[in-house]
Design a protein around this nucleic acid. Structure first.
Length: 217
DNA sequence: ACATTAAGTGATT
DNA sequence: AATCACTTAATGT
């Protein structure tokens, strides 16, 4: 078995080619902590303090926002290997409570970077700064997509995007979720989800089962 | 077999 | 499209 730091170096090469500086790679390998989460596990809840920036190595993480009122939720975006959580940077540096919730959608592995390094690397390593900037840009684009799908598209289009995002992110055409969970992600009623899925099934776009939706191609 | 949870449906707003 | 008030179907104990 290889040392954890060697393992991390290898993972960095595979998943984070943007991180090019040798010194940076070495620092990450030394101070980064490999962490595993099971499918469905809550990684960070609203209001908790963020003390690490996660580099996603494997799996899929769901990032959602909750309204201050009770139970209202909305899926913001999904993170995959090679991504990081942009929100965590801001939360870290401003020492703020998390405004979002992150949850593992499937078995997920991350490299956790303690916050004190995150900041100093910004000036020390060009590729780190670029990486952070790029990930901000990507997340922002994702959010814009979500916003205009809410503002300008009907639920049918939103559902289509949603199903596609999940199947692509997990690499599995079958989604194991209840209609209620999907309704929560989209912030619509469960009945609306059930009825829409029923329609999609009738035109052979999906196959439905209890707790699962299979996207047909 | 019974209870619980997920999903389907019609009516109303 | 939300909510309500069911019904039906699938699953767990």
């Amino acid at each position: 078995m290889s040392l954890p730091s060697e393992k991390i170096q290898k993972i960095l090469h595979q998943n984070f080619p943007q991180i090019t500086e040798k010194g940076l790679q070495e620092e990450i390998a030394i101070i980064g902590k490999l962490m595993d989460f099971e499918a469905g596990e809550l990684i960070m809840d609203y209001g908790s303090y963020v003390r690490m920036v996660p580099l996603i190595v494997k799996g899929c993480i769901k990032v959602s926002r909750e309204d201050s009122e009770e139970g209202k939720e909305l899926l913001l975006y999904l993170l995959n290997a090679g991504d990081t959580c942009s929100m965590s940077f801001t939360c870290c540096m401003l020492d703020k409570k998390s405004a979002i919730r992150t949850e593992a959608l499937e078995a997920t592995t991350i490299i956790g970077i303690p916050l004190k390094y995150v900041d100093s690397w910004m000036t020390k390593y060009q590729s780190w700064k670029n990486f952070v900037m790029m990930s901000y840009d990507n997340r922002l684009l994702e959010m814009v997509k979500v916003i205009d799908s809410i503002a300008f598209k009907g639920l049918d289009k939103r559902m289509e995007q949603y199903l596609k995002a999940i199947t692509e992110s997990t690499g599995n055409t079958t989604i194991s979720m209840t209609h209620q969970q999907m309704a929560d992600d989209l912030n619509v009623s469960r009945e609306a989800v059930s009825r829409l899925l029923k329609k999609l099934e009738q035109i052979n776009l999906v196959r439905l089962g209890r707790n699962q939706i299979t996207l047909l191609g």
